[in-house]
Design a binder for these strands. Structure first.
Lengths: 305, 305
DNA sequence: CTCCATTATACTCAATTTGAGTATAAATAG
DNA sequence: CTATTTATACTCAAATTGAGTATAATGGAG
């Protein structure tokens, strides 16, 4: 940080999220191994508008909410960069609804990349087979070191620490350091056991995805952004299922209702669902909320049913 | 976002914060009108390490905590950029302790730029003269428009809405739109009254500072980062004063103690303060916490004494 | 040495918010 | 018309919060 400019190559990377029938999905290149990215065009007024334009052209669907995630410029990233310069990647999180993918892109269940992050199926708290294997590998890595052991415990909710669904990145990072994800082997790290299940991605894309999930899981707790993922009108259960899909955790039904209804975020449409069981009221988000998304608080109840 | 690279100029901008005797301060160029910035050097391994190196060289003081804030690339910013290309600015928030400034830099009270953000002095909730003037200007701007009026109310805590200290950026943005800060006039916006008190800064530096304050005020509530601003050992009152300085709000003493002591973040040093009044226990932050900053939760009590 | 101003620390208590249930209502499928 | 399914309404104890009051330990003034 002193004098002189240099040639720099800038790319945008997008993590586009949709939730379809209880499955949180992310837009990827066709085979699911990479996030969509492309160079920053001179024609774009701003980063945000550049990204918006590109996404809407690709997906033919409006992009509801966009948020900047992180900017990377490590030299490790500059493989594709000009010889003398370096490459900067600016990543974004975008919320949208799923549309038929065009061309070489496809929607993938994000838990495909992070199977351990989906805890909606768990009942009596018997660890899954996968969890058991993961713990073994991590234990082999900590090898009794107290600091390491504590990091593992607080990230994965062991030794009496509660599971925190926001720590997606911390968990991925730890698995990477322990050599338990494929990317670690690829980057030449020592492994401490079989890789944990979960599809790898190109370069650091899986880490970027983890960052996005962390951010989103945190954000839905205090800002009304979930509604960008839902249809125009929805029942309280639809809303709950959507939140649960993102958080990877089941929630208490009555409490969820109580919290949501007490916040003046929703208004009734006057219509009802049909189908098996008692019809549910359909709601929509109050339009004023959308305009003040950045200012309006939201609360969500915590875990389990 | 399609093909072709271009020449891009990248800069780092730092918002360095320290708290000295109840005053939150920010490192600026000597006259206080700009934040320190400089081009990204090819020698830096990563953005973060580049910033760290630069800051430590300038201030001769270690930089405790660093966090990326936001990356801008609006064409409005590219005045200094190469003719055909554009300029990207990556901004950072850093926490440190104040040291004698070297060369052309100086520490400034951040409330100098945002006088309305300091509400520690307020007692009976009679609006300040400044506040009254500000409200007038904002009312002139909303001109009865319901949406505008609501934005103002929720950002500034009017019409029964509670003041939210995190909305620093929203408030600055609103004042800018209403033409009530100097930068607005400079950029050729229509004014709706006298500019509100508060020193302007070059380009969008004041907005960046607002972003930093927002982030920091939010962060101290859930991550243990305050201790980067405190001396090695401190009393509970020192800690409280530091948090209050950042939040711009006074807090309830007993409740502050209760929350801080119930969290296992602190450990006693065995020493005590001296001076007027009963000596206070001196604490330090548990070292393990520093290592797991990104994982460990913190809670803070809310407002007022 | 005593009293006072000053700050620290310990308790108290009501109001609210949470977590976890149970009970009742309104549909559809056979 | 009965079982099944989902929605919605209540209940209740535990925990957390907001706002105080009471007591303890200093240094300084007289």
């Amino acid at each position: 940080m002193a004098e002189g400019a240099q040639t720099i190559h800038a790319e945008l990377i997008a993590v586009l999220v949709a939730v379809t029938q209880g499955v949180p999905r992310v837009l990827t290149l066709a085979d699911g191994s990479a996030l969509p990215e492309g160079p920053l065009e001179p024609t774009h007024r701003s980063l945000q508008s550049g990204l918006r334009a590109w996404v809407e052209q690709q997906t033919h669907h409006p992009l509801g909410y966009v948020e900047q995630l992180y900017t990377f410029a490590d030299q490790a990233r500059s493989a594709k960069a000009p010889p003398e310069g370096r490459s900067i990647s600016i990543s974004y999180l975008g919320l949208t609804r799923e549309a038929a993918p065009q061309g070489a892109i496809s929607w993938q269940d994000w838990y495909r990349y992070f199977p351990w992050e989906d805890r909606r199926g768990e009942n009596k708290r018997e660890p899954t087979l996968m969890e058991a294997r993961m713990r073994e590998g991590l234990a082999r890595w900590d090898g009794g070191d107290v600091t390491r052991r504590m990091r593992v415990a607080s990230a994965f909710g062991l030794d009496g620490v509660a599971w925190n669904e926001e720590l997606v990145l911390a968990r991925y990072q730890l698995l990477y350091e322990a050599g338990l994800v494929h990317e670690a082997a690829r980057d030449g790290r020592a492994a401490h056991g079989e890789p944990v299940p979960g599809t790898p991605m190109v370069a650091d894309h899986r880490r970027i995805l983890a960052t996005a999930i962390s951010r989103l899981r945190a954000k839905i707790k205090y800002r009304p952004v979930v509604f960008e993922l839902l249809a125009e009108s929805f029942s309280l259960l639809d809303l709950q299922r959507c939140v649960e899909a993102l958080a990877g955790q089941r929630m208490h039904k009555s409490n969820f209702r109580r919290v949501m209804e007490g916040q003046n975020l929703l208004e009734e449409t006057g219509k009802f669902t049909s189908g098996p069981g008692r019809p549910a009221k359909l709601f929509r988000f109050r339009e004023a909320i959308r305009a003040e998304r950045d200012i309006t608080d939201t609360r969500l109840p915590t875990v389990r049913t």
